[in-house]
Amino acid sequence: MKFAVIVFPGSNCDSDMYHAIKDGLGADVEYVWHDETSLDGFDGILLPGGFSYGDYLRSGAIARFSKIMGAVIEAAQAGKPVLGVCNGFQILLEAGLLPGAMKRNEGLKFICRPVDLKVENTNTLFTSSYEEGEKITIPVAHGEGNYECDETILSELEENKQVVFRYVDSINGSRNQIAGITNKQGNVLGMMPHPERAVESLLGSEDGLKLFQSILRNWRESHVTTA
C-alpha cells in the first residue's frame, strides 16, 4: 500500500504524518505538493494539520481550491481511504467530502495537549484495530476545532454511526463532543486529534498507531487474491 501526504503552503504536520507511516507503520509514503493534479498510484490519501494558506478567510477554505483537491475528491469517490487530521479535517469539510463546519474553540483559546477519546465505531477502515468503547489518548492542537452542524446532520451522523471518535470531556464546544467523523461510505475520516503524534511511547502514547494499522490491514484484506 502506498500513501500520499498532501502538502499545502502552511502545512506543518506533514513530516509528522510521513514519519508515522514510514517509520511507525513501515509502509510506503510520498509527499505530494498541492499543485499536482493526479494521485494515480496512491492507495491512501492523507491531509495533514497546519495552517494551509495561513488560514485566511477560514481554516481550509482556500486549500479546498488547490489543484490537488480534484484528485482527492476523485480518490474519495473511488472508495480509497482519505484521512484529514486537524487542518486536513477542516479542508475536507470545506470541500464537501464531510458534512458540517468548524468554529473557533469555545473560550477562543488555542488548545494543545493530550486528550482522552472514546472509540465509538470500530466497523470502519480506520478503526477496526480498536475495541468498541476503547478509551485512547491522542494530542490535539487547534484553535478552530469546535465542530458544528444542524440538527438534521447531527441526527444522521449519530444514526449512521458516522461519529467514530468522541471527546471523553468537552474541550472545545464540539456538538455531542464529536472529535472525528466519516462520510456515509466510511472511507473518508476527518478528526481534530493528531494520531500521527501518538505512534510511539516516546511521544507519550501509541494509541494513534492502531488507526494507521487499521487502514493498512483493511487494504491488504481487500486486495488479497486467491489462486
Results as ranks from 00 to 15, higher is better:
8 F>L: 11
101 A>Y: 10
191 M>S: 00
225 T>P: 07
141 A>C: 14
96 G>W: 10
14 D>G: 08
176 N>D: 14
49 G>Q: 02
14 D>M: 07
151 E>Q: 13
91 I>S: 08
199 V>D: 06
55 D>T: 14
184 K>F: 04
181 I>Y: 01
73 I>C: 06
26 G>A: 02
57 L>S: 13
116 D>R: 10
154 L>C: 02
182 T>R: 07
164 V>Y: 04
193 P>N: 06
156 E>P: 04
171 I>V: 10
209 L>E: 03
30 E>T: 10
99 P>K: 09
24 G>I: 02
112 C>Q: 14
46 L>E: 00
151 E>G: 00
136 I>D: 06
116 D>M: 08
61 A>C: 15
140 V>W: 08
7 V>C: 12
112 C>G: 14
138 I>P: 11
36 E>L: 08
128 S>H: 08
173 G>I: 02
135 K>H: 15
198 A>E: 02
24 G>H: 01
20 A>N: 09
9 P>E: 10
112 C>S: 14
25 L>T: 09
92 L>K: 10
8 F>D: 11
205 S>E: 01
195 P>E: 01
212 F>L: 02
22 K>I: 03
185 Q>S: 14
65 F>M: 14
191 M>P: 03
3 F>A: 13
12 N>S: 13
2 K>N: 08
24 G>K: 01
15 S>F: 03
188 V>E: 07
220 R>D: 02
134 E>A: 15
4 A>N: 04
59 S>A: 15
156 E>Y: 00
197 R>G: 03
140 V>P: 11
24 G>T: 04
122 T>C: 14
71 A>N: 05
9 P>V: 05
36 E>D: 11
158 E>W: 00
77 Q>M: 00
216 L>Y: 06
91 I>G: 02
152 T>Q: 02
206 E>H: 02
61 A>N: 11
78 A>R: 10
133 G>P: 14
68 I>D: 07
4 A>D: 05
36 E>V: 09
90 Q>D: 15
88 G>T: 10
154 L>V: 01
63 A>Y: 13
106 E>Q: 08
77 Q>P: 03
146 N>G: 12
52 S>R: 08
114 P>Q: 11
145 G>Q: 04
12 N>F: 03
111 I>N: 09
124 T>A: 06
5 V>G: 12
149 C>F: 07
113 R>A: 15
106 E>A: 11
144 E>C: 13
49 G>M: 05
